[in-house]
Nucleic acid binder design. Structure first.
Lengths: 257, 257
DNA sequence: TTCGAAATTTCATCCAGATCAAGGACTCAT
DNA sequence: ATGAGTCCTTGATCTGGATGAAATTTCGAA
């Protein structure tokens, strides 16, 4: 079924032949130096547990636009995203597509309790992931209660985000959808310690449209209108400067937080 | 904020003064006789664990149209629905509403890892629930790995359902939405061993509309059209007989399962 | 630097579903 | 039974966002 199967470059984690010479804070395995560890599922682990997890991980890199997992394919692996942006999507047989989420570094991907994946995951930019064979991961899950609780908390938060997105898709105007989207990206960047004002849009207009239940034309028009009203500028098509974030909040239709 | 706070009739479970006289299959506590146990979170528990859970449960009944939990309210309890239908919803300040899900007997309600509930839950019909104080429930969660794994699996399945709903809200036509909704109800009823063909609609048209991102008028017109095309009949406004379920499948826009 | 394909924006038109406005049909309390 | 209120349906009209088509802009590769 997969038209051109993903080719991943992969190497075992925790077995690198490192050439650094400084002694003192020598990490036992690369996970200790991982910059997204604190915001990922790994933050719940003790050092010893982290070593066990590291032992079953492979580092994987994926080119922009390649597919990471296919909807309906056997769910053999789970992943932790360490670099880049991933989009999750579902398609109808006639080609209509809904993007159900964007993943950023630190996000967890692929956990299901069914035989097969329920959505497709594709690399929006070049991407790095830690890959874990599902059965090994689930074995560790049973041994590390912290890990299981953390995943439950992650799943619960994703469920809340999904409910927000249903409200957006079912009841917001195109203007409100785009305003909500921009603020979501800005807040997320801030939470990750990244520049949150001239915000970066790693995905193209078609992706944004399919995430918001709109067309590219409507996304473009909504951005133009926000620009005309002095709320933002577009230094480039993939960069948005928010001139009046507070005014943008008003336009999301949401309660102010 | 809550205009008229819910009044629940409540009584401790597991302390009833039962008057039955037959000896042999005497259940130690009412949970053993619960008819939704097998499809609820409780199915993951050993008899001894079930007793522990039962000890912290209160049986609660709620009138139709009463509110069970308020969005933004402190999340002090979790619930297991044993009877009736519940709707979960989110509102925008101007009153637009999105129903994010309907719950049926066996469904779990209220699990969050935030201070407050993220949605409102209201009784569509008269409802019975098992209520658990959240802190006590979370304490048991840490002790019973089965329970935690079961909740993770439930959360993961809910997430998949949420993604299906995003596809519906963002990309399906009104016809496809209504067809999908009817089949969802029918399948659910079948899974619960209930009559799945003349299906029962416990919720009104406004609820259906707010679940599908439509208006009541559009729901009504979509039903009329399906009726005109010989796919269903409406013996009463709250009953739908599916005359050609297979043809209805075709109209959902989905892959055939 | 220039070229060419792809992405984005812009413009004109259309239509599915919303809105506005009555009618009917249940339902339940009297 | 009866009537009043609610819920549901039907009809007429409007409109936000889709569709179709084409200009621009962007950006990587030669």
């Amino acid at each position: 079924m997969p038209p051109d199967k993903l080719i991943m470059t992969s190497s075992q984690v925790g077995r690198g032949t490192e050439t650094d010479t400084i002694r003192p804070p020598r990490p036992r395995n690369p996970c200790h130096a991982c910059d997204v560890r604190e915001m990922s599922v790994c933050s719940s682990l003790e050092p010893a547990e982290l070593d066990r997890l590291s032992a079953i991980a492979s580092k994987v890199t994926v080119d922009a636009r390649a597919t990471i997992i296919y909807e309906g394919e056997e769910a053999d692996n789970v992943f932790n995203l360490t670099l880049g942006t991933v989009r999750l999507s579902k398609m109808l047989p006639d080609g209509r597509r809904q993007i159900t989420g964007f993943l950023f570094p630190g996000d967890f991907l692929g956990l299901v309790f069914t035989e097969t994946y329920g959505y497709t995951a594709e690399a929006v930019t070049a991407v790095s992931l830690c890959r874990f064979p599902r059965w090994k991961f689930e074995a560790l899950l049973s041994k590390f209660p912290h890990l299981e609780k953390r995943l439950l908390s992650i799943a619960s938060n994703e469920l809340m985000a999904a409910q927000d997105q249903m409200l957006l898709l079912g009841r917001k105007s195109s203007q409100e959808k785009v305003a909500s989207f921009l603020l979501m990206l800005s807040r997320r960047a801030a939470r990750h310690g990244l520049p949150d004002n001239p915000i970066d849009l790693p995905m193209n207009r078609a992706d944004i449209a399919d995430y918001l239940g709109l067309t590219t034309e409507t996304v473009s028009r909504a951005l133009k209108r926000l620009h005309k009203n002095g709320l933002l500028t577009l230094p480039s098509p993939s960069q948005v400067a928010l001139l009046q974030p507070e005014a943008l909040e008003e336009l999301t239709g949401d309660d102010l937080p």
